[in-house]
C-alpha cells in the first residue's frame, strides 16, 4: 500500500479511501497542524541578550525552540508555540520577553 499523506486524508474522505484501522503512516505529520493560534501570550526572543545556554529548549512542551545543526538557538516556532511562557521563565538572562499576543 502506498504511503498515505495528509493530502489523501481530507476531511471529506469517504469510507472506501480512509486508511484501514485508522493507521497513519506519515509519522510526525502533526507538525502540519498549527497550534500557534492558541496563544494569548507570546514569547519574544532577544537575540542580543541570548547567551545560547539552551535552557529554554528542553522545557518547551511544543518542541518550538528552534536549534540549528551547530547547536545554536535560532528562534521560536510560532506555528506551534502555544504561549505557555515556560521558556521565558527559565531564561537566566531575561532574553525571552513574555508579552500579550496582539
Amino acid at each position: 500500500m502506498s504511503k498515505k499523506e495528509l493530502r489523501d486524508i481530507r476531511p471529506d474522505v469517504n469510507w472506501k479511501e480512509i486508511t484501514p484501522g485508522g493507521v497513519i503512516d506519515s509519522s510526525g505529520n502533526a507538525h502540519l497542524f498549527k497550534t500557534g493560534d492558541w496563544r494569548s501570550m507570546k514569547p519574544i526572543w532577544n537575540e542580543e541578550k541570548c547567551k545560547q545556554c539552551l535552557l529554554c529548549n528542553p522545557v518547551c512542551p511544543d518542541s518550538s525552540i528552534k536549534v540549528n545543526e551547530e547547536g545554536k538557538m535560532t528562534g521560536i516556532d510560532y506555528d506551534h508555540c502555544k504561549g505557555c511562557g515556560v521558556c521565558a521563565k527559565v531564561c537566566p538572562f531575561k532574553a525571552i520577553d513574555f508579552v500579550e499576543e496582539v
Partner: peptide, 21 residues
C-alpha cells in the same frame, strides 16, 4: 522504513467512515 501510528483518537469527522469500512 515506514513508521506508523496505530489506534488514534478518531472523532466525529472520521470514526463513522472507519466503522463503515
Amino acid at each position: 522504513e515506514n513508521p506508523i501510528s496505530v489506534g488514534p483518537l478518531d472523532l466525529q469527522l472520521h470514526y463513522f467512515e472507519h466503522k463503515r469500512q
